[in-house]
């Protein structure tokens, strides 16, 4: 059970003068239950890549296997795939359209052909999962605050009961508390419901904190692929493509050079604090 990308290429405006190779021989695996952080610059191909995962864009060449089946097979059920791989776009609240929150969340499961009862049950569960207060279920989505709208939009995808949830910068434009709420929700979905997560993010700190696995994209290619610790131990390599390691990693390196016996692979505030305390107490 996993997603495998096998030599995927994608070319925009093929055959014209502004032909762009958006994905260039991309191969990697997203194992079942993974929490994948997908990082890279604007224009590195991240957004193009995630649109391949649920078949919105079709690779120019190469294959994608979902649970062992080639999604480009002629008889593959694309609609079912879109239910299994839930894609949450950037600023997903801009796609809300129904007259009330509940109806909007029903849109996805209804499209999948669920019965009225199952649709409503799925929508209810999803709204509960994103912790939207009950009294907001039947108000217009346009009346909600920014953070609430974002959660409703997330529920709209969750209601389709996806096995994989792909989120393109889900925290963009939110305040720090709103960011924590959304990331916390995503972590809960991963930990408690076992949903595989693909998180596209610009924030190294967030990826370091939440992801188990990181893929770094650059110019449409997979630039690096590994665990957060592996990736961020190559800070200078990341810097060559304009990215960086989390801030604390740099602090740890400088402390090490200054003579502290600290762990330079620390990538979160907690790990860094643990290691510094240990180093200080030891000495």
């Amino acid at each position: 059970m996993s997603i495998i990308l096998d030599h995927v290429n994608y070319i925009y405006s093929k055959g014209t003068s502004d032909e762009v190779k958006a994905l260039d021989d991309v191969s990697f695996e997203i194992p079942d239950g993974d929490f994948l952080g997908l990082i890279g610059h604007t224009g590195s191909g991240k957004s193009t890549l995630v649109q391949h995962l649920d078949g919105l864009l079709k690779a120019s060449s190469g294959s994608i296997y979902f649970n062992g089946e080639d999604i480009y097979d002629r008889d593959y059920d694309m609609k079912a795939l879109r239910g299994k791989v839930g894609l949450v776009f950037q600023y997903p609240e801009h796609q809300l359209f129904e007259e009330d929150v509940f109806k909007d969340v029903c849109f996805g499961p209804k499209n999948l052909g669920l019965s009225q009862k199952d649709t409503e049950l799925a929508a209810y569960r999803a709204l509960k999962d994103v912790k939207l207060p009950d009294e907001l279920f039947y108000v217009s989505p346009f009346e909600l605050s920014g953070g609430q709208k974002r959660r409703v939009a997330l529920a709209g995808v969750l209601a389709m009961k996806p096995e994989v949830l792909v989120l393109d910068e889900p925290t963009a434009g939110l305040d720090p508390e709103g960011r924590n709420e959304i990331l916390g929700l995503i972590k809960e979905l991963h930990d408690k419901q076992g949903i595989t997560i693909v998180l596209v993010s610009h924030s190294m700190d967030d990826v370091a904190e939440y992801a188990d696995h990181i893929v770094v994209m650059d110019k449409g290619k997979v630039f690096m692929n590994g665990t957060p610790k592996e990736i961020f131990s190559h800070a200078s390599k990341l810097e060559t493509i304009g990215l960086s390691a989390p801030g604390v990693t740099y602090i740890m390196r400088r402390l090490k050079r200054a003579g502290f016996d600290v762990d330079t692979t620390a990538i979160t505030v907690k790990e860094a604090a643990d290691s510094i305390i240990r180093a200080v107490n030891h000495a």
């Binding site: 649109q51 649920d54 919105l56 609609k79 879109r82 239910g83 839930g86 894609l87 776009f89 997903p92 801009h94 796609q95 809300l96 359209f97 849109f107 996805g108 499209n111 999948l112 709209g156 995808v157 389709m160």
Partner: peptide, 29 residues
């Protein structure tokens, strides 16, 4: 359009009435 397709919306099949109804999730946003 892509975001609604990701939520399983179908703009390509069905008769005229079904298709024009399918436009609502695009036009409102």
């Amino acid at each position: 359009i892509k975001a609604q397709q990701a939520r399983g919306a179908d703009f390509e099949s069905g008769g005229i009435i079904k298709r024009s109804k399918a436009l609502v999730p695009i036009l409102v946003p």
